[in-house]
Write a protein that binds this DNA or RNA. Structure first.
Ligand SMILES: [Zn+2]
Ligand SMILES: [Zn+2]
Ligand SMILES: [Zn+2]
Ligand SMILES: [Zn+2]
Lengths: 164, 164
DNA sequence: TTTTGTTATGTTATAATATAACGTTATTTT
DNA sequence: AAAATAACGTTATATTATAACATAACAAAA
């Protein structure tokens, strides 16, 4: 799960506590209730797994974890749950490495920028409406209307850069 | 192949003529010569196929075309050629739909923004160093050094919007 | 110009990611 | 309760990409 903290030094950011995860799941439940959608046991379980992960996770990793938990599961099991969570803005998908991560701010629909460290895998969701708005303006100059922006910046996080 | 024209109304832009493709291949050859790299028959053939395509193409589509041309080819054949072309900046890969397209300006290494129409598939490479520089500045605030920027904007091109 | 090392390609197999199709179960609506 | 809808189980398969190892082409050295 991406940190919900405000500071930029993510190196000092603690991993999501079980309390934070529970909080996030509660949020998700409220959100689904308001939209008259079913936050089923499967969807909750998959979201919990994505939240608990320190880094964005692959679909088949989630599948393994579902199976380890005792549940009968096949690829469609996890992909259907992920599709639901993506549609509701509860998770994001990273196209550059086919992984999924919990959204840092699921309350409001938004486009986001992702900073993906290619060394340690640490990934940070950055909300910069300014950038997205600027992209939208530029696209308009080309007579293009953006529906979805995928902005994934791969590189080195500070911690990895400092340790070579 | 993305247009090399300056106007923004891509709807009026003609498809790459065989002359334009030949020109592009010549450029690529010069570029490889200068770098002391082998612009082999296979690499040239794959680049030609990517150039001729009206839209970004998938690896297995290229594989089919290679086979149709009479050449013996397997997945590694096309992926190795694509890897070379990607490394040399002659083609780009779109992570959001796993396709490849010729670079509009291979002379200079650059990051680019792609406008991908989800209706007709038309894809335009836009060079906006301003945006990329701004992304780099924002990333720095998070102690992050960008090595590769993937900026893929999916939506509706003007032509498709006007025809519903 | 043979030898030798290096780079590129051929070939087979397999990994990794994702979806189609159809039957069953659970939930909601009538 | 019955019917309709939505979610899930299950099997099979599609799509995208790479591992591993053999052969061929090329370049540098002897
Ligand atoms: Zn988000
Ligand atoms: Zn890192
Ligand atoms: Zn380019
Ligand atoms: Zn279009």
């Amino acid at each position: 799960m991406t940190e919900h903290c405000s500071h930029s030094d993510h190196a000092s950011c603690t991993l999501p506590s079980s309390e934070q995860v529970a909080n996030f799941l509660d949020q998700a439940e409220v959100l689904c209730d308001r939209r008259n959608l079913r936050f089923t046991k499967l969807r909750k379980q998959v979201l919990a797994l994505v939240c608990k992960a320190e880094q964005p996770v692959g679909a088949y990793h989630l599948l393994d974890e579902l199976r380890e938990s005792g549940r009968s599961a096949a690829p469609p099991t996890v992909y259907r749950a992920l599709d639901f969570l993506l549609e509701q803005g509860l998770v994001h998908r990273l196209a550059t490495n086919n992984t999924y991560l919990a959204c840092a701010h699921p309350q409001h629909p938004h486009a986001a920028v992702f900073l993906v460290c290619s060394v340690c895998g640490h990934t940070q969701e950055v909300h910069t409406e300014g950038i997205i708005a600027e992209l939208r303006r530029r696209a308009e100059q080309f007579d293009f209307a953006i529906k979805h922006a995928s902005v994934e910046l791969t590189g080195w996080c500070g911690r990895c850069r400092r340790s070579q």
